[in-house]
Design a protein around this nucleic acid. Structure first.
Lengths: 242, 242
DNA sequence: GTAAAGTCAAGAGCAGTGCTCTCTTTTGTT
DNA sequence: AACAAAAGAGAGCACTGCTCTTGACTTTAC
């Protein structure tokens, strides 16, 4: 077993290092083009031009345009995940409401900073492109996992008030789905609150999407920061996070 | 002033009728392509092929690809608006909660029926395309207008319970925006409820977008209808719609 | 050392796109 | 029937993703 033959994991050969660097450059340039012209207009030829190389050469590193999209997708998911993790970890573990607000603000701030990346993750699916689940689910679930774990921790700590407003019944078919989620993630939160947690999740991204995608008119809302803070406050209330 | 010369408004000449018919055909074929391949892949050449005409000929009817997108945008907004209107009008005027649920279900049903159109309206903006506000704002605000008018009517009728949960303060900057909205639309609903109404609006479309855009995993939720109904129920509760 | 194997960039080429231009044909009006 | 406006055809430009072949270079093996 010659060591040099399968050094892929331990000692990267100069060739492998150069290759990895080139791929990193391609992803970096791809992100620039994504930010400037959007996902649908992402062009391998343009990236190749910026890389100072002929178009066919990039196919040595990236199988196809879709493969580049996948790389950018994973990159973006992880950047968002890192931003959320940093914001949440900056607060004490038992500050559940604070952590919820921090998570929401982190998502919004990142989305406004990188609207094209946000659109790639949470906007309309790119036509003809199907994200490979085995590579994207793990980074793609970081935020929601963080959100739900915070809820569960709050519930375990007895820090969750009873959900306000009229009780909304959870039908059996939905309860089955929620039970599967609860068991897979090891949650103690009751059905009613898991369902409300899902609503909070979708509502959070709904609010951010409306802002990033320009669904609010051009000048309907000047105080968008305050509007979002208010929305977070109401959402926190609906799950009993004081 | 020869009458035949400016008959544009009164008596359409055969030529104008043929022209209007061709434009309608182009929009129809455009919608088919939109549904099949998505907005970014909408191709004037393909539409021309289906129309049985050479590509340059369609430019006699549609200025550019973006113009066709605008036509499709208005078409879709009006179709959604019609669907919502029909669903809401089917219930008595004073059934405010029922009308809210009907509106939500109508939006979701249309979105699931026409995912590509929904993506065009509420998904990531098409890169390089800017919707002409003077042509799209009126049809684009039909749903939210319907939503907010129903809220206001419920409030006027005294059918709105006090918002549940902890009171969330509305900061002055946000209150200014809300005041402008209130005066423009002639609303009587107080600030706190207008703000919550905005949250309900964004949350409704957030939930629909997550489902249409496949943000729920492939098999996380089987009972999506029930999930959405539950979400509508909780949202209705947050604005005091029993 | 030298030869084989592996890697990479370049360029041509295919099929597609949006869009413009010119030329010819159709068609409604007078 | 004559005319002008409208519509279609076709060529052409610059661009896209992607494939294939060719030639050069680097690493590995004997």
């Amino acid at each position: 077993m010659p060591a040099a033959k399968q050094a892929t994991a331990k000692a990267p050969t100069p060739r492998e290092r150069a290759r990895a660097q080139t791929i990193a450059d391609i992803v970096r340039l791809g992100r620039e083009h994504l930010a400037l012209h959007g996902a649908a207009a992402l062009s391998l030829r343009a990236v190749a031009r910026d890389l100072g190389v002929v178009s066919s050469a990039v196919y040595r590193y990236v199988q196809s345009r879709d493969e580049l999209l996948t790389l950018l997708l994973i990159d973006a998911y992880n950047e968002l995940g890192d931003a959320v993790d940093a914001a949440v970890d900056a607060l004490p573990e038992d500050d559940f409401a604070g952590r919820f607000h921090a998570l929401g603000r982190a998502v919004r701030a990142w989305a406004l900073r990188e609207p094209a990346c946000y659109a790639l993750l949470f906007g309309s699916p790119v036509p003809g492109y199907q994200a490979p689940g085995e590579r994207t689910t793990v980074p793609g679930t970081r935020v929601v996992l963080r959100l739900v774990r915070n809820f569960d921790a709050a519930h375990r700590a007895g820090a969750l008030a009873a959900p306000p407003g009229p009780a909304v019944v959870v039908p059996p078919a939905l309860a089955a789905d929620l039970a599967a989620i609860r068991s897979e993630l090891g949650l103690e939160v009751p059905d009613e609150l898991v369902a409300r947690g899902v609503l909070v999740w979708t509502s959070l991204f709904g609010a951010v999407s409306f802002e990033v995608f320009g669904q609010y008119g051009a000048d309907t809302f000047e105080a968008r920061e305050e509007l979002f803070a208010h929305q977070l406050g109401v959402l926190a209330g609906t799950v009993g996070l004081a």
